[in-house]
């Protein structure tokens, strides 16, 4: 780890100008990924600008009934927040499925979105890796890629995005808000992560030296009936092999709204729009769920050793949607109406 300067800031403006002024300066929040990568020699910032004293840790309700998650709110705080748990259960579940209690107490919303892939070749500076050293090649393509991408990869990079939290946020159409010295901006999470293309080192649409200030999750009735399911090589404390965030709103046997995103399969959380379209507006049946799952993974291109992830992704979509359909059926069969009819219609354009 190379030597670096450290400063703590209490004003967003100060943080921004410090990072603008110093070459090689980086924002530091929870540090769970950045400090790790600094030890590995993958990151070597000349200056760390600690942003945890900025007033960005809040979790609040937005006027439209959605949520504003402050960039430095810890994963633990978001997962335990009553509003999150009530309105976006899949978000709480996804965070709790990630890392460990200790790491969730440190990790923040903004840092979680910006975390780097856990591809072992990326983490080892002695290996070629286009994401770390553009143009050096992709070791995983012909190497050990058992847990690499099956969707959206190119020959330049087959790494996956490791975040659990970003998967339901993608399904819920979250928007990333940021500040720059030129003023604020925002970008939908669906456009936040850039396609791999031939420059896997360029990961996000965040402007250079911008600071994420919040993630806005729009109100969506369907999100109240959501679920996150993560499959991994041990029962806890491991990155996803495949994960699914799903939300399903069924009224009178018809899918009013559905949200579906996959983790562990691509360089970004994979919004399963094909499956969503196939289901939306139609009756909810086992056959249609099955067909939607098949449709979504039809485009998958597994590598030599990760074909099982296609099956796993397909089965997991089916399993989570089926469980949601079954529980929504039970709910509407019980306390009729569920107090939700008519509210918060979502267009699916």
């Amino acid at each position: 780890m190379r030597e670096f300067a450290y400063q703590r800031t209490t004003q967003i403006r100060d943080a921004l100008s410090s990072v603008a002024r110093h070459d090689g300066a980086r924002f530091l929040a929870g540090g769970t990924n950045l400090v790790d990568l600094m030890k590995a020699g993958v990151e070597s910032p000349a200056r760390l600008v600690d942003i945890r004293s900025l007033a960005l840790g809040g979790i609040s309700e937005s006027p439209d009934g959605g949520l504003v998650l402050g960039a430095t709110a810890t994963n633990s705080a978001v997962a335990a927040d009553p509003l999150v748990r009530r309105r976006y259960p899949a978000l709480s579940q996804a965070i709790l499925a990630g890392a460990s209690g200790q790491l969730r107490n440190m990790a923040t919303v903004g840092g979680n979105l910006l975390q780097r892939t856990r591809c072992a070749y990326f983490a080892d500076p002695s290996e070629p890796c286009n994401k770390r050293a553009p143009g050096s090649g992709c070791s995983a393509l012909g190497g050990a890629h058992h847990n690499h991408a099956i969707l959206g990869w190119t020959e330049h990079c087959v790494a996956t995005h490791p975040s659990d939290m970003a998967v339901p946020l993608t399904a819920f159409d979250a928007v990333v808000r940021y500040e720059t010295l030129d003023g604020p901006g925002e970008v939908p999470l669906s456009e936040f992560y850039l396609p791999v293309g031939d420059r896997p080192d360029r990961e996000t649409a965040l402007p250079d030296r911008a600071l994420i200030t919040a993630v806005v999750v729009p109100a969506a009735e369907v999100a109240g009936k959501s679920r996150y399911r993560k499959v991994r090589e041990r029962a806890s404390y491991a990155f996803a092999t495949v994960s699914v965030a799903a939300a399903l709103d069924v009224q009178d046997g018809v899918v009013r709204d559905v949200r579906l995103a996959l983790g562990g399969v691509a360089s970004r959380p994979w919004r399963a729009r094909l499956a969503e379209s196939a289901l939306r507006g139609g009756p909810v049946t086992a056959e249609r769920i099955s067909a939607a799952a098949d449709l979504e993974v039809a485009a998958a291109e597994p590598l030599r050793d990760n074909g099982y992830k296609v099956t796993l992704a397909r089965n997991l979509i089916e399993a989570v949607l089926t469980d949601l359909a079954a529980s929504s059926g039970a709910a509407s069969g019980g306390a009729a109406g569920n107090g939700a009819a008519g509210a918060g219609e979502e267009s699916d354009g």
């Binding site: 049946t285 086992a286 099955s290 089965n315």
Partner: peptide, 12 residues
């Protein structure tokens, strides 16, 4: 696909 899950949904 596991049959049990299909049974679960057909019960909806």
């Amino acid at each position: 696909a596991p049959r049990d899950r299909q049974e679960a949904i057909s019960a909806v």
